[in-house]
Design a protein around this nucleic acid. Structure first.
Length: 763
DNA sequence: CTAGGGTTAG
């Protein structure tokens, strides 16, 4: 904000005159203009009729030329509108030249329109040049120029133009203030926005519709829903835009209940929703994953004629995906006559979201693969991916641990220039982190020219997940020095770094800092970190005390961590208790049963075994799906324990046998655990345990991945402790980095050590 | 000249 024009900041605030209000038009300018457009002269209609049969501009212009005796400059308006729709700079230039030739350039109203069209086509250099050449300009001309800069994502320039206008002695209208407020919104500058708001209050124009709408939008985008709603309620004549802005504010700030009730209220008030309203209210539905309400909104949109509207259909498609209805989304996608880049992006992002939400890892994996497929199709189409596309696809690569595709995307973002976008940069950082490469994640972070709070948090999280607690905490201090305010997620990373390193005092100090200095209310995840801290140190009683006096019902992570601690520190009674609690939380989760059964079996508590088995039957718990995937040279290979891809005597089988032999010489002994269940119950799996899917995938990787490159595997359930200790040894024997992302966390095995600190394998 | 659909961290 340092380079804001001096008229707008500091002592020398806005130079608006006290009688500013009388310069606000009583009727809105746009209505006057619209009136002019509709007042068609015979020539205009002639031109329009030509337009409807052919888009040949020369032909249209020749008509004007033929009847050039005494025609109005208005005849250009429909053609210019066509230029705007086509986003064609060259067509606009042609008309512009024609206007100059016929001498109509003295018409300020017409020339303002041309400035506007250049702006809409993104040709701001031409717009500015024309503007500078104009002998006279009025407030609409100035406003049009500003609006053009906003369209070209140059809100700062728009504000500079505003200050030029004030220095020029031209008074703003309500529309002008709306545009400037919009620039503040894009800059997320509440400060400047509030300054303008001050003047707006002083001149008592707060109830103006354009101003109220713009204020509401500004506060919403700056995450202040209360102020946004206040601005909305103070708006005098609420039009469809006012309502839509308010609904959209609710969607953006997570108050879906208010969003839906505003929509209902709006319908009761007899305001007809338009395409913008539909997209906004559908976003609210997305937030709630409310397919029921969404369907009703969908029906209403069709009734009002938006069946073939691209933005509305995109929103519905995205809602389907958010609600897990893939085939419905696909049907809609394939049925769309025209699609936009946003359509592609919504499909990709929707599949990425499905991965995130899917309880079933198989489904998550196939959604990710489908997202990559859609991306490939987009690349073959005539459209080019943009920053939204790259952010989503990179996220998909993270979740798939698909480093090679991720690296190709990295190259593409450099080539296309989208890497300079902070969201894309952050997504890249996360991709490298989740693929196990802390070095490349770090490089991506260092090379970013702008860093948001999320970028910092991502990097702190990366250090924390890799077990580099000191670096995580150092970076947190750097973040504070850089003046970036952490949020609750940042503190999750910080606290988990502390627990990983056993730093109890520091952990508690950061917890206090979060509550006292940053006024962040602790959530479950923070408590989970603190409890994990005690658990790792073997202070189980302290951990349990903490759980008891906490104001939340403990979640599955807390119980899981407690179980892990109890087992490694030999407090079995507490472990049983925690495991039963976990089971009550997750009565359908197969992994939990396997964990519990293993515990009781190894202790010889057969009564408990049969009790748990009985419950398993009642709950109809299915088979444990142990799958692993590895991506080698752009192709994904999947493995199941009894995989036909790895027949006895095949290369993977031989490789695994060889590894087992070598591991035994340095002390490996297969643990007799009960890994896999079927409908009948449990099978003793000492023989099967050596065929757990990640062992097969790692063996395959060692055979087929490029020499010395790390092995990256993704797994559908959490690793069992046997695989965990086996892979640790493999990392010593082969001197390779092995990265396994299971359903719970990242394991990076280097030289016999795992980044999880041996606290991540329960089964 | 104002309003929209798709993006990043646990």
């Amino acid at each position: 904000m340092a380079s804001l024009p001096s008229v707008l900041v500091g002592n020398n605030t806005l130079k608006l005159e006290p009688d500013f209000k009388k310069h606000l038009p009583t009727t809105s300018l746009s209505v006057q203009q619209k009136g002019n457009y509709n007042n068609k002269t015979a020539t205009t209609q002639l031109v329009e009729s030509y337009e409807s049969v052919s888009l040949d501009f020369r032909e249209a212009l020749s008509v004007i030329q033929d009847g050039s005796s005494g025609f109005e400059s208005n005849v250009y308006i429909p053609i210019l509108q066509e230029c705007m729709n086509n986003q064609s700079v060259s067509q606009t230039q042609m008309i512009h030249a024609h206007i100059i030739k016929t001498g109509t350039f003295e018409d300020l109203y017409l020339m303002t329109f041309v400035v506007n069209v250049y702006g809409k086509c993104g040709a701001m250099d031409l717009a500015r040049k024309l503007f500078d050449d104009l002998p006279k300009k009025n407030v609409v001309t100035w406003t049009s120029l500003m609006s053009g800069y906003i369209q070209s994502s140059e809100p700062m320039v728009a504000i500079r133009v505003f200050s030029e206008m004030l220095e020029d002695g031209t008074y703003p209208t309500n529309y002008t203030l709306g545009v400037v407020l919009h620039a503040c919104t894009l800059l997320l500058s509440v400060k400047l926005g509030e300054q303008l708001h001050g003047f707006i209050v002083k001149y008592q124009v707060e109830d103006d519709t354009s101003i109220g709408n713009a204020l509401s939008c500004l506060y919403s985008k700056c995450r202040s829903l209360d102020s946004a709603v206040k601005a909305f309620s103070r708006t005098g004549d609420k039009n469809v835009i006012s309502w839509t802005t308010a609904i959209s504010a609710c969607g953006d700030n997570g108050d879906s209940v208010m969003g839906l009730s505003l929509f209902t209220e709006m319908l009761y008030d007899g305001i007809e929703p338009n395409e913008y309203t539909f997209t906004s209210v559908l976003k609210v539905c997305c937030f709630m994953q409310a397919m029921g309400v969404g369907s009703q909104v969908h029906s209403l949109s069709i009734k009002l004629g938006y069946q073939n509207n691209i933005p509305v259909t995109n929103s519905i498609m995205y809602l389907y995906l958010k609600c897990g209805l893939i085939s419905e989304a696909k049907k809609l996608f394939e049925g769309m006559g025209k699609i936009s880049l946003v359509t592609w992006n919504a499909m990709i992002a929707g599949h990425a979201k499905m991965m995130e939400q899917a309880v079933d890892s198989l489904l998550a994996h196939s959604s990710g693969m489908e997202a990559l497929n859609i991306f490939k199709k987009l690349n073959r189409s005539n459209m080019k991916p943009d920053l939204f596309t790259y952010s989503s696809v990179l996220t998909v690569c993270s979740a798939l641990v698909a480093l090679e595709q991720g690296e190709q995307l990295h190259a593409q973002t450099i080539k296309s220039g989208f890497l300079s976008d902070v969201v894309v940069g952050t997504a890249l950082l996360n991709m490298y982190n989740k693929c196990g490469s802390i070095e490349k994640a770090c490089k991506a972070f260092v090379e970013m020219s702008i860093r948001t709070m999320i970028s910092w948090t991502s990097m702190i999280t990366a250090f924390s997940q890799h077990g580099h607690s000191q670096q995580a905490l150092q970076l947190f201090e750097d973040m504070r020095l850089a003046g970036v305010r952490p949020n609750k997620i940042t503190f999750v990373a910080v606290l988990s770094a502390c627990s990983h390193a056993g730093m109890v005092d520091e952990g508690l100090a950061y917890f206090k800092l979060m509550k006292n200095e940053y006024k962040i209310k602790p959530v479950m995840d923070h408590y989970a970190c603190l409890i994990d801290m005690y658990v790792r140190l073997g202070q189980l009683d302290e951990a349990f005390d903490f759980i008891k006096k906490m104001e939340f019902e403990p979640n599955e992570f807390i119980w899981s961590n407690l179980i892990a601690g109890c087992r490694s520190h030999g407090n079995l009674e507490l472990a049983y208790y925690a495991a039963e609690q976990l089971l009550n939380l997750n009565p359908k989760d197969c992994e939990t049963y396997v964990l519990l059964l293993n515990m009781y079996l190894s202790a010889g508590k057969y009564q408990d075994v049969s009790r748990v088995k009985k419950r398993m039957k009642i709950e109809k718990v299915g088979k444990l799906k142990d799958w692993s995937w590895i991506s080698v040279r752009d192709k994904v290979h999947s493995f199941k324990p009894d995989d036909r891809l790895c027949p006895p005597g095949g290369e993977v089988d031989l490789m695994l046998a060889d590894l087992l032999e070598k591991a035994r010489t340095i002390g490996y002994e297969a643990q007799g655990s009960f890994g896999v269940t079927d409908e009948e119950g449990l099978e003793q799996t000492t023989s099967k345990i050596i065929h757990h899917s990640e062992k097969l995938a790692v063996a395959y990787g060692l055979l087929n991945a490029p020499n010395e490159s790390p092995i990256r595997v993704i797994k559908s359930i959490s690793m069992c402790s046997d695989c965990h200790s086996f892979i640790k040894l493999i990392s010593v024997i082969t001197e390779r980095e092995i990265i396994i992302r299971d359903s719970k966390r990242l394991h990076k095995f280097v030289n016999g050590k795992c980044s999880c600190g041996d606290f991540g394998s329960l089964m």
